[in-house]
Nucleic acid binder design. Structure first.
Lengths: 197, 197
DNA sequence: GTCTATAAAAGGATAGAC
DNA sequence: GTCTATCCTTTTATAGAC
């Protein structure tokens, strides 16, 4: 296994494209600008990718894979923690990860305004990661219920938790980090009081 | 004051453009398609608007004005209601209004992915409507506190309420109406339990 | 105000030399 | 793999007749 000391051209194209697609969207990004930032000429892009859509898909694949890999590391952080902590860490780590501006932006764009021709492909990938998340949350809730810490209505708690997650996710983009942290803390406190026995 | 029996051309352009900008974004929408849907030729657009950006700004102005007008009618619905109800109605009406697909979509696009050159202008308009909202919410919270119904920490409650609002707003776009209604109900219940004394 | 005609630029994509 | 040169299409925008 070779150690990669510097990015090859294809990786550079993906990195540059991620940044541009995130900030300007698919239509708003031109191949000319991608090539220029990579430091090559436009036609050279076609030596690495079939066309513009192909570049976009490669970027998305990487984003998804990275996110799922990240989620695994978070899941590992949860072992040996109190159930209450687990629930909070899951929430916090998720927003921290997506706060990385470009990553969060392209993730958001994908989910909210999927490119028409890629809608199906995106939805499929997205659902897979959502299932994992729900499984992890449900396991924590079960633990909390068995210990008699929270109320019995799992569906209510799950719905409220996802709403909390979506709300904090959305707010990552509006507010500076310090303000967002306060909002997250407050929202979490109210949520926790709301689900306790 | 004349009664407008049918839309004039400028209004038709705005209506058609709203729909297209909402679904395809600024770059994804062409003047050719706007003109075609209005039923005129492309160059005729320039008799009504200076350029593409000008059309976009006119659309946004209308969206903002409509939203603020709607908010006024909601505020009127609140009088003579219990404070708890007021808080819930505000939440529910807001998502109901934004559920209108195109309206919600363009609203979302504006806030999350403002067109680079228009960022400042959009933020300004948006902040005005947000201030009104916060004023209304704070008045309700004051009422609830004076009656000893909710806890004293206003900032915590306000932050959690906005998170709830942002979460339900986001979910309007993911889930069908019936499922969204259930999620809203559950999230509200947990929130309410969380802020009560 | 609407049209035809046309400009001027930018976009994605290919051919072929090196 | 990268380049120059080029193609084709689409896009925004203007000129000028009616």
């Amino acid at each position: 296994m070779e150690v990669q000391t510097s990015q090859n051209t294809a990786d550079k194209i993906k990195a540059v494209s991620l940044s541009l697609f995130a900030r300007k969207g698919f239509e708003g990004t031109s191949l000319a600008e991608i090539a220029s930032r990579v430091g090559i000429k436009k036609p050279s892009l076609y030596a690495h990718f079939k066309n513009k859509e192909d570049i976009f898909l490669a970027v998305i694949d990487k984003v998804m894979a990275d996110y799922i890999a990240y989620f695994e590391t978070v899941a590992n952080k949860l072992v040996n923690r109190q159930a209450e902590e687990k629930l909070f860490i899951l929430l916090k780590e998720n927003t921290d990860y997506l706060r990385d501006e470009e990553l969060g932006l392209i993730w958001k764009r994908m989910m909210l305004f999927p490119h028409e021709t890629l809608k199906e492909k995106l939805k499929e990938k997205f659902l897979a990661s959502e299932e994992k998340m729900t499984g992890t949350i449900l396991a924590i809730l079960k633990e909390l219920k068995e210990d008699g810490i929270i109320q019995e209505n799992t569906e209510e708690v799950l719905d409220a938790y996802y709403c909390l997650m979506d709300g904090t996710f959305e707010q990552v983009f509006y507010y500076p980090e310090i303000e967002h942290k306060r909002r997250l803390q407050h929202s979490w406190q109210v949520f926790w009081k709301g689900i306790k026995r």
